[in-house]
Amino acid sequence: MSPRRSLPLRTAVAAGGLALSLAVLSGCTQVADMINTVQGEPVSAVPAPAPSESPAMAFNSQFTYDGSVALSSDVAQDLELRLDVWAQNPKRTQEWTADAEKTFGFAVNVHDNRVDEKSVLSQKRRVFISSISITSQTAQTSGQVQSPFQFSADPRTLVPSDTIRSDRGLLLNSFQGGLYVPETVIHGLPVDTYGMTLEFAMTVWVEGNANDDASFMQQTVYQYLPVAIFSADQAQASAPTPSATP
């Protein structure tokens, strides 16, 4: 055997001896100790950091994900007040940035689940809305909180004059009335805004028994609508790619 091959052979013999020693050891602890002795101390695995979410996506908003939302409140047993809100312009909520004008529409209606929706009004418990207001609260990376958007109105001034109304306000019952506001504009927001919560406050008069003027009671209903706000870069990145011309 030539001298050149003696060193690799010795290395192979040594490795084989180590493998044999490991094989005859009993118990997982002894095997682990032997491996640690040969390889040194084990290195703890460090999990890779999760990809960071953009601030807008971290602001949970069903309205932003779907472009519309239906919020419901019970004003009496089996009597549901419903608030529908939808993005009007831009319709793609990923384009709702701090500096852009953001237009949404909303509607308020009521459903008496004790009777069929097509029942005559005298068979339903009537609900009138006498005032509605919307306030806002921003979520900003700076930690500041502001209220840049405000809205307040008598619902009777927001609909045509022939809509059913009374001294208690505008009638909401489905098929006989309702409040429909197609456009409400949110102007510029602080530049570091990544979310905003709209608070709807609606003062209503609720009839306790159908066709009973003496049974009305007043209450205020609150609904909260989170809205994500995107940066200009995020809005541009989410824009659909134009299809190539054949």
Rank of each mutant, 00 (worst) to 15 (best):
A14T: 09
A15F: 13
G16I: 10
G17V: 05
A19T: 05
A19M: 00
L20T: 02
S21R: 12
S21C: 09
L22A: 05
A23Y: 09
V24F: 01
V24P: 08
L25H: 02
L25Y: 10
G27R: 06
C28E: 15
C28F: 14
C28A: 15
Q30A: 14
Q30S: 10
Q30M: 04
V31C: 09
V31E: 01
A32L: 13
A32V: 13
D33E: 15
D33Y: 07
M34Q: 12
M34E: 05
M34I: 11
I35F: 09
I35K: 01
N36I: 15
N36L: 12
N36D: 11
T37E: 05
T37D: 04
Q39M: 15
G40C: 02
G40S: 12
E41I: 05
E41T: 15
P42W: 04
V43T: 15
S44P: 09
S44N: 15
A45E: 10
V46M: 04
P47A: 07
A48I: 14
P49H: 06
A50N: 07
A50P: 01
E53H: 08
S54G: 08
P55K: 05
A56N: 00
A56T: 10
A56H: 05
A56L: 06
F59E: 03
F59R: 09
N60W: 06
N60G: 09
S61D: 12
S61L: 03
S61N: 04
Q62I: 11
Q62F: 08
Y65Q: 13
Y65M: 13
D66Q: 14
D66M: 06
V69N: 07
V69K: 06
A70S: 11
A70Q: 14
A70H: 14
A70N: 13
S72L: 03
S73N: 08
D74R: 14
V75H: 10
A76M: 10
A76C: 08
A76R: 11
Q77K: 15
Q77S: 14
E80D: 14
E80Y: 11
E80W: 07
L81P: 07
L81M: 04
R82I: 12
R82S: 10
R82G: 04
L83W: 01
L83C: 00
L83R: 00
L83D: 06
D84I: 11
V85D: 05
W86F: 11
A87L: 06
A87I: 01
Q88W: 09
Q88I: 05
P90N: 06
K91L: 09
K91W: 11
K91Q: 08
R92E: 14
R92F: 10
T93Y: 02
E95A: 00
W96H: 08
T97V: 05
T97L: 02
T97Y: 01
A98R: 02
D99N: 11
A100L: 02
A100C: 10
E101V: 13
K102D: 03
K102V: 03
